[in-house]
């Protein structure tokens, strides 16, 4: 009897794990098909320039203030933190370079992606999921218009164009924040500050940072729109879709960040 119970519970556990794995793999497969469909649709005319410009304005222009503010304070605070440590070793002159390097390679793409997930990604999910639960997406399909082509592709293209640019602005403003801290707090010479940055930060660092921002832009737009299109269940469903989309985007960004960093450092 006891053997039978153990056997049943083992079979039950295995089947549970099996079901969980199958579901995850099915979701992953569906997401892969969705990504393929987005890029296929992106290559299908017409190119909806008006919608792309609307999204450029929304994702880019409307996020500019928060990117500038966050970039400046991130650079300034980071410089304050490492400046204190470098001061012990009398190496304040390279604090600007260290900040710029960290901003360029890691902090700017990651912070930009996090900010854009919260500001633009969540809005994308909320807007599309509201359209879904109010039958507007169904209406679009009924009018023979593909929602991926009309809703997802313009958001993806705009994100791919503008997020790397916002990341570049973040790097520039963040470095300026570090410059202000370095010159005002640690009394670093302006010429030396700039010279050390030129010495330590090269084009490859900038390229690697922007490369990350580019990949993150695809993650933000595609996950946000996917959760929006799959929403159901009224206002509660919209809230659920938005929260899940933000959490999932952040997790995928962090996972991909490790992977991309590893590949970039190996190459």
């Amino acid at each position: 009897m006891a053997t039978l119970t153990i056997k049943n519970s083992v079979v039950g556990s295995v089947s549970l794990v099996g079901r969980w794995t199958t579901e995850r793999l099915t979701n992953l497969g569906a997401f892969g098909r969705y990504i393929y469909e987005i890029f296929r649709q992106a290559c299908t005319p017409p190119i909806r320039w008006d919608l792309i410009f609307q999204q450029l304005e929304f994702v880019g222009n409307q996020s500019l203030n928060i990117i500038i503010l966050t970039g400046f304070f991130t650079g300034a605070v980071f410089a304050l933190q490492i400046g204190g440590i470098f001061q012990i070793f009398r190496a304040e002159s390279i604090m600007g370079a260290a900040t710029a390097k960290a901003l360029t390679r890691e902090m700017a793409p990651l912070m930009t992606a996090f900010l854009l997930t919260g500001r633009a990604g969540s809005a994308m999910t909320a807007e599309i999921s509201t359209m879904r639960v109010n039958e507007q997406v169904d209406a679009m399909e009924a009018m023979a218009v593909d929602p991926i082509h009309y809703l997802v592709v313009p958001r993806l293209i705009a994100s791919m164009l503008i997020i790397p640019l916002l990341c570049a602005i973040f790097i520039f403003v963040g470095t300026f924040g570090a410059f202000v801290t370095g010159v005002a707090v640690f009394d670093v010479d302006v010429g030396i500050f700039i010279d050390r940055i030129k010495w330590m930060v090269d084009a490859r660092d900038i390229f690697n940072g922007l490369e990350k921002a580019f990949v993150f832009s695809i993650i933000i737009a595609s996950i946000a729109c996917r959760y929006g299109l799959n929403a159901s269940g009224g206002a509660k469903g919209v809230g659920r879709a938005t929260t899940t989309s933000v959490v999932m985007t952040l997790l995928v960004i962090l996972f991909c960040d490790v992977f991309i960093t590893y590949v970039q450092l190996r190459l």
């Binding site: 359209m131 109010n134 039958e135 507007q136 169904d138 209406a139 009924a142 009018m143 023979a144 218009v145």
Partner: peptide
């Protein structure tokens, strides 16, 4: 195939971000 249809939805399903004219112009 769907181009041969017109459909009126239960809640009308108008696009909120568009004006009445733009909604009708859409198809």
């Amino acid at each position: 195939y769907r181009k041969k249809f017109g459909m009126l939805f239960q809640q009308a399903a108008l696009f909120d971000s568009m004006t009445v004219g733009e909604n009708v112009l859409f198809p």
